[in-house]
């Protein structure tokens, strides 16, 4: 076998899969988005860009976009700060640190749906410990899962918690890859702990941070579906309906195939923006794939 064709053979399985199950559906999305299709598919109507017109003028969709934006930015922002703090703590060389690391990484293995049931239980009105804790601490019993904006906050808590493991692992690895000499030099210059954190650690782990921001955005935008489906099903009043949840409802509960495809195009466009940003700003971070 000639060495020239070997790489193509090696790539064949992967490219067959992505052709049929990623690029072909992507092309199909564009086609479907120009149609209106009946639930059983027995009536099909070409309507051009009407689905998009409807999407862009829909207050409901604007609300969903807004919810997603708030949800993603708060979850990713707060989640990464907490993760960084914990990672700094786990970087200390104290006895038993190995055990602490092992335990703290645990949420990595937990699925969004499991995170959903665990927190739905903790926040439930009749049996939840968090509800009880709030009652004895603050004298109130907030309706976590059924009121605005607490329902969205509940989803945020579950998601931040679930993401901790992944984020901490990467932050810790980033921190550990910083050469010791940098800190030693700073100590000689008389820099305090805070100064070291802001002048050395944070700048030097910025490629990791960038990678984590992208990964977290993708995760919180899409994988959160399981958490939402278990905890609130998009309610109350649609206040926890994010883009992916709406796409599911329109595609598989309301049977609006064409309309859902138009929503898919919007999601594709959003992801295209991320891809562009990624290539533009993350030349350095490409290694961290």
């Amino acid at each position: 076998m000639s060495r020239k064709i070997i790489p193509y053979i090696l790539l064949l399985p992967t490219f067959i899969i992505i052709t049929f199950f990623i690029y072909y559906p992507a092309a199909m999305t564009f086609k479907l988005s120009a149609y209106r299709v009946s639930p059983f598919g027995n009536r099909i109507m070409f309507i051009g860009l009407k689905n998009f017109k409807f999407l862009f003028t829909s207050q409901e969709y604007a609300h969903v976009l807004y919810t997603t934006l708030i949800f993603v930015s708060v979850t990713v922002g707060v989640g990464l700060v907490i993760s960084l703090l914990i990672a700094l703590l786990l970087n200390e060389k104290v006895p038993g640190i190995g055990i602490f690391r092992t335990l703290v990484f645990a949420p990595y293995a937990i699925s969004p749906a499991v995170a959903g049931t665990l927190w739905a239980f903790l926040l439930s009105p009749a049996a939840g410990y968090v509800s009880y804790l709030f009652l004895i601490l603050f004298g109130t019993q907030p309706q976590w899962l059924t009121s605005f904006p607490l329902a969205l906050v509940s989803i945020m808590i579950a998601t931040i918690w679930k993401n901790l493991g992944f984020n901490i692992i990467f932050f810790l690895a980033g921190i550990q890859s910083i050469p010791k000499s940098y800190y030693e030099a700073a100590t000689i210059d008389g820099a305090g702990a805070a100064k070291k954190l802001f002048n050395i650690t944070i700048p030097l782990i910025s490629p990791v941070t960038f990678y984590l921001v992208i990964m977290n955005i993708i995760f919180t935008t899409f994988s959160v579906f399981g958490t939402i489906d278990i905890m609130t099903q998009g309610g109350p009043g649609g206040t926890t309906t994010t883009l992916i949840y709406k796409l599911y409802r329109d595609g598989f509960v309301n049977y609006r195939t064409g309309f859902a495809s138009a929503e898919s195009i919007i999601l594709l466009a959003i992801m295209a923006v991320f891809t562009y940003l990624y290539f533009k700003f993350a030349q350095r971070a490409v290694h961290y794939q």
Binding site: I22, P25, T29, L32, I218, L247, G251, S261, S264, T275
Partner: peptide, 18 residues
């Protein structure tokens, strides 16, 4: 680029048709 195209989420409707 497929890293940014989780088809099983973004394109569930057409992928389901496939």
């Amino acid at each position: 680029i497929t890293l940014f195209m989780p088809a099983e989420m973004i394109m569930i409707v057409p992928l389901f048709q496939v």
